[in-house]
């Protein structure tokens, strides 16, 4: 009966994952390997194709009506930045990194909303102290977003804009500092992480484990969080045994990734703080500001 409960939990989290995250690993890998019936993604590999890509994405619609509606509302809610963004579009090529960075921020803010909805679907999460729910999200969400970048990446580049665009790693490395430094550590993490060959159902459990970390600073009531995490950890261990019977120590290898993630997030936050100082025109999305402020 215990194993049956754990399997039910795994199914529940997988269903929530499919509900809230529009671009699954299965879909991303199909796009990256050219196996989709749709058109291949638009490739951004230099400044010219970046400018073309911006037009390309402006003409395209967001995948589902539900997401389109939510994205529009989030953009309206964030009118200050949208205005700044449009103003920047008139600028010369020098501003292209900033403009791209603003687009990344808008997508990141939307992704935080998706992760929040996923967190709320974890059984027991919404019963936790509300302050602790905030803390778990504040500290967990960037780690989750970095994990979720892995399926979109290969050694040569990354899918962006819901899989409609592929941006090359070389192009990202060619941007001026510190923009060129922002994604390289994520590529390094992703290439190693992808060798574990997790599928979407494994990912759903791993993301829940990361969110339910009982050692986040400032938590008021650690015990119920640890209890929830222990149950999800059992579900993950069972899932990996069943789904990857030949992959030795996969559970241990996956847990080790949680340590690597903390350093990547710390470095990421430092880069953003550096950007805030060096790029006077740059304004941070208020939701991302909340998360990053006093983080590490």
């Amino acid at each position: 009966p215990e194993a049956a409960d754990l399997r039910a939990l795994s199914r529940h989290l997988y269903e929530a994952y499919l509900k809230y995250f529009p671009l699954t690993k299965a879909k991303a890998r199909a796009i990256l390997s050219g196996k989709t019936a749709d058109n291949a993604p638009f490739v951004i590999h230099d400044m010219k194709s970046l400018l073309e890509g911006e037009q390309f994405i402006n003409c395209k619609q967001i995948p589902t009506p539900e997401h389109q509606q939510q994205m529009s509302a989030l953009t309206v809610a964030h009118g200050g930045l949208s205005g700044a963004h449009q103003g920047l579009e008139c600028n010369i090529l020098d501003a292209v990194e900033l403009r791209f960075f603003h687009s990344c921020q808008s997508r990141s803010a939307e992704a935080v909303r998706e992760v929040t909805e996923f967190a709320k679907s974890i059984p027991g999460f919404i019963e936790l102290d509300l302050n602790d729910q905030v803390t778990l999200l504040k500290y967990g969400v960037i780690e989750v977003l970095i994990i979720m970048m892995a399926p979109l990446m290969n050694k040569d580049g990354t899918l962006i804009a819901y899989g409609q665009i592929f941006m090359t790693r070389e192009f990202l490395k060619s941007l001026r500092k510190p923009f060129c430094q922002m994604l390289e550590p994520k590529f390094e993490f992703s290439v190693k992480f992808n060798t574990l060959e997790l599928d979407d159902s494994d990912m759903a459990l791993f993301l829940a484990v990361v969110i339910l970390s009982g050692d986040r600073p400032g938590l008021l009531n650690v015990k119920p969080i640890e209890q929830l995490q222990e149950t999800v950890l059992h579900a993950l261990e069972l899932q990996l045994k069943l789904n990857h019977p030949d992959s030795l120590q996969l559970f241990a290898k996956l847990l080790q990734k949680m340590t690597d993630l903390r350093q990547i997030v710390t470095d990421h936050v430092h880069l953003i703080q550096l950007l805030k100082k060096s790029e006077m025109e740059m304004c941070l999305h208020p939701l991302l500001q909340e998360i990053i402020k006093d983080l590490y």
């Binding site: 509300l130 302050n131 905030v134 208020p286 909340e290």
Partner: peptide, 21 residues
């Protein structure tokens, strides 16, 4: 904490509706 994280708090409290800043 709630005061410092108004949007996160809103996201947690509202169902699937987007944030109204």
């Amino acid at each position: 904490l709630k005061e410092k994280h108004k949007i996160l708090h809103q996201l947690l409290q509202n169902s699937t509706s987007p944030v109204d800043l």
